[in-house]
């Protein structure tokens, strides 16, 4: 079952979103995901256009607000596989509050962040992950704010799955993203990709040279070791860690919620509730 829609995506030639789209579609196909029970939720930005170029159910909502929408879809219909697709501005900037509280809820969702460390759709402003000193269309003298470290933030908040991958390594992408989708709980995958038009620093070559997989580098790497995972997450300048960085198998929102843990699918419940007995309490 192909997840690709026949269409000409409105991204710049050479954009990292092209290989990301192909990698994602093949990952979903290889996993045998049931298309009718799959929903993609996105915000706004170049990354958030993704579902228009796939053949899926989707809710392409407001800038930064994909996580609350995804939460409720999953809450009322746990039979759906829900994926949030977002960019570094959409998720870590506009949607930062929801990112934090989504992790706290630990509902079963996979959040894929196309992190190219720049704003694309609004033309080259610094994003929350743009490194200090980088000159942009607005930060003319270079960025002076500290960059947001998504992996460290997610681990600090005890997200139940934290990973990173690269659009230039299809096999690695498939490994990390499929593990994230299979993981029960809030899964964060920070996806490194170049913006060929607006980011001349974090290029394909830049990522290719610096990225390394934590468990390939160290066969004894234990993703359940939170302190060690956090230490890895802080690495950047010389080497950038990727792979399955942190995993904590803990109960999900559905498993803890007093109503949902009974396995109820609200989207399939009949709506009528007889309240005549309830009214008697007001006599």
């Amino acid at each position: 079952m192909s997840f690709l829609r026949e269409v000409d995506p409105a991204w710049c030639p050479g954009c990292g979103n092209f290989p990301l789209r192909m990698n994602l579609a093949s990952t979903l196909e290889e996993m045998g995901v049931d298309k009718s029970r799959f929903v993609m939720v996105t915000g706004i930005g170049q990354a958030a256009k993704m579902p228009h170029y796939l053949d899926v159910n989707f809710f392409n909502g407001l800038h930064g607000r994909s996580i609350p929408v995804a939460f409720a879809i999953k809450a009322v219909n746990p039979e759906l596989t829900v994926i949030v697709e977002s960019g570094d501005g959409d998720m870590y900037g506009e949607g930062g509050n929801h990112f934090i509280h989504g992790i706290r809820r630990n509902f079963d969702v996979t959040v894929l962040i196309h992190d190219n460390q720049i704003y694309g759709l609004t033309k080259g402003q610094g994003s929350p992950t743009t490194r200090k000193g980088q000159k942009t269309s607005v930060q003319l003298q270079g960025v002076i704010n500290e960059p947001l470290n998504p992996l460290a933030l997610a681990i600090t908040m005890d997200a139940s799955f934290v990973g990173r991958t690269f659009i230039g390594d299809k096999e690695h992408f498939n490994k990390v993203v499929s593990a994230a989708i299979n993981h029960k709980g809030f899964s964060v995958v920070d996806i490194m990709q170049p913006c060929v038009t607006f980011n001349k620093v974090n290029t394909f070559k830049y990522y290719k040279e610096k990225l390394y997989d934590v468990s390939e580098a160290d066969s004894s790497y234990d993703p359940t070791d939170k302190a060690n995972a956090f230490k890895r997450a802080l690495e950047w300048d010389d080497k950038i860690p990727m792979g399955i960085i942190y995993v904590n198998d803990k109960p999900t929102y559905h498993e803890l919620h007093s109503v949902l843990k009974k396995g109820v699918v609200l989207a399939k419940e009949k709506t009528a509730i007889d309240i005549s007995a309830e009214l008697k309490a007001f006599r």
Binding site: F59, R65, P68, V69, A72, I73
Partner: peptide, 12 residues
């Protein structure tokens, strides 16, 4: 946004 999500998925 949550309520819009719940409604989109079919629940009042």
């Amino acid at each position: 946004n949550m309520v819009i999500g719940g409604s989109f998925a079919g629940v009042r």
